[in-house]
Amino acid sequence: MPEPGPNPIDIGTPPPASNDEDADLLHPDDLQATAKAKPRGLVRRVLISILLVLAVVAVAMLGFTSWRIIAQRHAELEIQPSVGPLSLDYSQEGASTADYLRTALAAEVDLDRTYGAVYKEAPDKNVLFLAGTGLIWTPGQDLDAAMNLISDEEGAVTDLKDVEAGPLDGTMKCGVTKSADGDLTVCGWADHGSLALAMFNNRTPEEAAPLMLALRNATETR
């Protein structure tokens, strides 16, 4: 009788065949979808980062604007008897003109207090000065509105250019307008607490700008 052979080797139970659901996990379409999802996620992160940067910039600008308003809103003006080569005109005509200028500015711009003055340097050179104080939210726009006051009386102020505003900051501009006696140079400044205009005869804008800055430095304090 033959000898019994060796015991068969147990190779275990074969793994079950993968079903359709498991096969789908490795489907090429899924791989493409995953590849597309990565760029979309990157774009989303970039957009979020940009929005965060814009928010930080906006907050910084708001803080800077608020600081400027607080720093400038309590401006005070005092008409000086003389500024450089200019001397205040105390005549009746000068006082009447100054009062007219003050009233005209008060009607054009919402200010708490207004001032007017006429300065003379020589018989053929004078300066009509009008100014006021109050909380001004948009200095540049209010200065343009005040320039319209000159436009109504003499003609449009043209060739307006930004000039040095000095240590008091804000905005300052000079331009030219027509009058019956020839060209007048018009300069003005505005900040969050004050606004002023001055008309110079027989002076170019380049000559009037430093004189306007001297008027401001002598007249305005905070």
Rank of each mutant, 00 (worst) to 15 (best):
L25I: 05
D30F: 15
A33I: 15
L54V: 10
V43I: 14
R40S: 04
L51Y: 14
A37I: 01
G41S: 10
I48D: 07
R45C: 06
L42F: 09
L42C: 07
L42W: 07
V43S: 03
T34P: 00
V43W: 05
P39K: 01
L54Q: 11
R44G: 04
K36C: 05
T34L: 13
I50L: 15
Q32P: 01
A35F: 01
L42T: 10
D30P: 02
A35D: 03
I50P: 01
R45F: 11
D30C: 09
L25C: 02
D30E: 15
I48Q: 12
L47N: 10
R44W: 08
L52S: 08
I50M: 13
L26K: 13
K36S: 04
A33G: 09
L26M: 14
K38T: 03
L52I: 13
D29N: 09
A35I: 01
Q32R: 15
L47T: 09
S49L: 15
Q32S: 08
P39D: 01
R44S: 05
G41A: 13
L25H: 03
L42M: 10
A35C: 07
L31A: 12
V46Y: 04
H27A: 11
R45G: 07
D29W: 00
I48F: 14
L31R: 08
L51K: 05
V53N: 01
R44Y: 10
T34M: 11
H27G: 08
L51D: 07
R40V: 08
R45D: 07
I48G: 13
D30M: 12
L54E: 08
A37R: 01
L31V: 09
L25V: 02
V43Q: 04
G41N: 06
L31M: 10
A37F: 00
L47Y: 12
L42D: 03
A33S: 15
G41E: 05
P39M: 01
A37P: 00
I50V: 15
I50F: 14
P28H: 03
A37H: 03
L42Y: 11
A37K: 01
V43H: 04
A33T: 11
L47C: 14
R44C: 05
P39S: 02
